[in-house]
């Protein structure tokens, strides 16, 4: 009897944890959705800011975030998949692959602001790219690189060895096997990693603080070396700079809603792809918790 009461209390406690967690998080999303919706309009999405940030839209920030995100993926995708292929197919079991694996894991745990410092030191200063789309994209690319590497690695690992054997046994070369059998099979998993990476890159602020972002920029960026506005940084700037806090907050709500929607969409898409293909060859990659 006593045991039963303890069990009931314990389970009630666990349920309470779940409920509180769910309420907190649902509350935040709801709060942002309700307040953000008032700011949203066609004009908000397509017009540039007006009157010193207190009116108009956030189109340049959306465009800037798009550029930065795409830039980071263009950089991180080939490098990440290449690194994973090296680890999984060319050096598996070797000492070097262990070392690289550890390095990648640790890279994933590096705070995002430190990536920002790195970008500032290397891209902005040393390579002379300045505060620009290029510097920001590269910095964000390095930030999402570990996630793409580990997602790709897991995806490659999930490709049955028997496919590889079959291909090699017919006389395919290693590269033919990788290109025609292994990579296509691993594609959904790699894609999942990339989409999660896009979501992450779109929402990160600290790495672009010193490498790419501008509070206000007239017009749209016209070269890789332009400074850009970006959604997450725009939220920060609206809340901490400027002269009209009330109106700026309303705009920030709108930005926050767009950002949350974008990131949630990306995550859902990634989860959907992963679940759809999970059954095919074992489990798809998981999110990199370290990141």
């Amino acid at each position: 009897m006593k045991n039963k009461i303890i069990q009931a209390c314990g389970f009630a406690l666990l349920s309470a944890c779940m409920i509180i967690t769910a309420l907190f998080l649902a509350g935040i999303i709801y709060f942002i959705a309700v307040n953000g919706r008032q700011a949203l309009s066609w004009q908000f999405l397509t017009a540039p800011p007006l009157n010193g940030m207190s009116a108009g839209g956030v189109a340049p920030a959306i465009v800037g975030t798009f550029y930065l995100t795409m830039g980071s993926v263009i950089f991180a995708l080939p490098l990440g998949v290449g690194c994973a292929v090296y680890l999984q197919e060319y050096s598996a079991g070797g000492r070097m692959s262990d070392i690289i694996r550890v390095a990648v894991n640790n890279l994933a745990g590096v705070p995002s602001v430190v990536f920002g410092l790195f970008g500032l030191g290397i891209f902005v200063k040393f390579l002379g790219f300045g505060v620009s789309i290029l510097s920001g994209s590269l910095t964000l690319g390095i930030l999402i690189l570990p996630g793409i590497i580990s997602a790709s690695q897991e995806a490659l690992l999930a490709v049955p060895v028997s496919f590889k054997e079959a291909s090699l046994a017919i006389g395919a070369t290693k590269w033919q096997t990788i290109k025609r059998i292994i990579l296509p099979c691993a594609l959904p998993g790699i894609l999942t990693g990339v989409i999660l990476g896009i979501g992450r890159a779109a929402g990160e602020t600290a790495p672009i603080l010193f490498t790419a972002a501008a509070f206000y920029k007239r017009g749209y960026p016209n070269s890789l070396f332009s400074e850009v506005m970006a959604l997450p940084y725009h939220i920060y700037a609206l809340m901490t700079e400027g002269v009209n806090p009330e109106k700026q907050t309303a705009i920030a709500y709108g930005c926050a809603l767009i950002l949350v929607a974008m990131v949630a969409l990306m995550s859902s898409l990634a989860i959907f792809i992963r679940n759809k293909y999970r059954s095919a060859y074992g489990n798809g990659p998981r999110r990199n918790y370290n990141a």
Binding site: I29, P232, V263, I271
Partner: peptide, 18 residues
């Protein structure tokens, strides 16, 4: 929960502030 884990920190900072 996985989707929530991906919400950027700027959003939480913003929510905290407002």
């Amino acid at each position: 929960i996985e989707i929530l884990a991906g919400i950027p920190s700027i959003i939480f900072g913003f929510f905290g502030l407002v």
